[in-house]
């Protein structure tokens, strides 16, 4: 499985955010996206997820399921947590499991140390705990490609270590991760893409 981007150009509101981006990501590889605010890190991740359209260029996932879009084979963890405050932690995850087709709730809660909060209303969680609940989707549902937009925001050291462990396990199983972050992720990224940003 290999994700190849060639000459990608992203346009938002008539303005070119980035142009001529290319990379090739193989199984088991981690790519770190860096660049100043507004350089287009989130735009690139949304573009790969299929939520934005590229103004030019191609994006191919070779070796995946050709019936599915790239987005359907990917996890996208955005700034917004997609957490419903009126549902309990468990209900939040159970919905995504049913809707996206996933595995064991217990294991996912355990991976981000949320078991204790399973029956809590998500509205009672702190910002960091909400982020852990969003990240728990990674452990709940099997997807080969992970698109992580600033996944470490709000996490304490213990939670960061858990995230790093989950990411390492995913890479060791042959998964692929693209993470937009400036925080060291416990292992050297195999690829580094620096979006320069245009002033």
């Amino acid at each position: 499985m290999r994700l190849t981007a060639d000459n990608l150009t992203c346009e938002r509101g008539g303005r070119i955010v980035f142009a001529g981006i290319g990379f090739s990501l193989d199984e088991g590889q981690l790519m770190q996206l860096t660049g100043p605010n507004g350089a287009g890190k989130s735009s690139l991740l949304r573009l790969i997820a299929g939520l934005n359209e590229a103004a030019a260029g191609t994006l191919v996932l070779a070796g995946g399921d050709s019936d599915l879009t790239i987005g359907q084979q990917a996890h996208y963890i955005a700034h917004q947590e997609a957490v419903k405050t009126a549902l309990t932690v468990e209900e939040n995850l159970a919905f995504w499991r049913d809707f996206l087709g996933g595995g064991s709730l217990e294991a996912a809660l355990e991976a981000f140390a949320l078991s204790r909060f399973a029956s809590f209303q998500a509205g009672l969680l702190s910002a960091g705990q909400k982020r852990r609940l969003a990240l728990a989707r990674l452990a709940l549902i099997t997807r080969r490609l992970w698109l992580l937009d600033e996944p470490t925001v709000g996490l304490d050291t213990a939670s960061l270590a858990r995230l790093v462990a989950v990411m390492s396990a995913h890479l060791d199983r042959g998964g692929m991760i693209i993470a937009a972050t400036h925080v060291p992720l416990g292992r050297d990224p195999d690829l580094r893409l620096d979006l320069e940003g245009r002033t």
């Binding site: 949304r46 997820a49 299929g50 939520l51 599915l68 879009t69 987005g71 359907q72 990917a74 996208y76 955005a78 700034h79 917004q80 947590e81 997609a82 957490v83 419903k84 995504w96 809707f99 996206l100 087709g101």
Partner: peptide, 17 residues
């Protein structure tokens, strides 16, 4: 509205349905 604001709609748009 709420699903749009909290990003749920993004994930639904990427989903199998």
């Amino acid at each position: 509205q709420q699903d749009y604001d909290d990003g749920s709609l993004d994930i639904m748009a990427m989903g199998p349905v």
